[in-house]
Nucleic acid binder design. Structure first.
Lengths: 150, 150
DNA sequence: TATTGAGTTCACAAAATACTGAACTAAGTA
DNA sequence: TACTTAGTTCAGTATTTTGTGAACTCAATA
């Protein structure tokens, strides 16, 4: 019988919105939906089957998405004694690691801009100055992160 | 004859890296390369033809990419008297507008998390508390931006 | 008026992505 | 040993995304 999770209308909407947002960060639809479900559902630990049925994905699609989410540390799982299933959850307590990844992207962008600046022709002074100003803002932002979290 | 721009080896590499980074932010390859070229090349204003030939894109691909970059304010163009061509450039001086767009995304994510928190079951206290902590960090980050730039 | 230059549009081709079903595995259960 | 549970793998399909060429527009020469 169905193990589909019961969701309120509001929850369904939040899941849809969350998933779209995740897709905008380059996450594939199926993965985005799984993450969304695990963030919004009352139960924070869901089985393969609950995820599959609640989201209406195929078994293989669910498996592939879960495998990828595990490999990229977006989800984890636990087991329960006397129960063969795995229960997947979002390791919210590791949010700083996720933040770190975003800031690593920011840092890379900063550094690339610095390299670009370093080799730009001196003739385009205004362009270079503004690029520098922008890069300095990125640095400041990065520093806020580094001071507060890292 | 060819209007291909001369680029140093280093410039070519920077353009490639820049383009990959832009693609990671969901920009299509052709657009990513155009932006990269306009950021790295010594000349900051390039014609349609220079862009097309330097990057080896088709005419139509170039046209479509430029149209989209213009529509999303990632590039602008100017004309020169007695010259029918348009000269495209990155409006670096508007970098704050681009930043604003990124932070609008951050804000939306924050707000969605707040909505999720508001409706979450009280039973998952630990989960909720950590989600709240994370959302508060995002708020702090947003505030840095708002205070410094907005 | 014909030609050239500077693009634009569009229908389609190619490539990359995402998803599906069917067959398979491997551990536990009857 | 046969069956069930809980997935995994894979080949192929469907969908989406990008890029292309050919034909077209429209203004400015010649």
């Amino acid at each position: 019988m169905s193990e589909k999770i019961k969701l309120t209308k509001e929850q369904v909407e939040l899941i849809e919105q969350y998933a779209v947002m995740m897709e905008q960060t380059n996450l594939q639809p199926a993965m985005a939906k799984i993450l969304a479900l695990l963030n919004v559902a009352d139960e924070t630990e869901l089985s393969f089957n609950q995820i599959q049925e609640t989201l209406g994905l195929s078994k293989s699609g669910t498996s592939q998405a879960i495998t990828h989410l595990l490999a990229t540390d977006r989800i984890e799982y636990k087991t329960k004694l006397g129960d063969r299933k795995r229960y997947f959850y979002v390791p919210v307590h590791k949010w700083k690691d996720i933040a770190a990844r975003h800031f690593a992207g920011l840092e890379a962008y900063m550094k690339l801009n610095q390299k670009i600046l370093a080799q730009r022709s001196k003739k385009t002074k205004e362009f270079n100055d503004i690029l520098k100003e922008m890069t300095e803002f990125l640095s400041a932002l990065y520093k806020v992160y580094a001071d507060r979290i890292k």
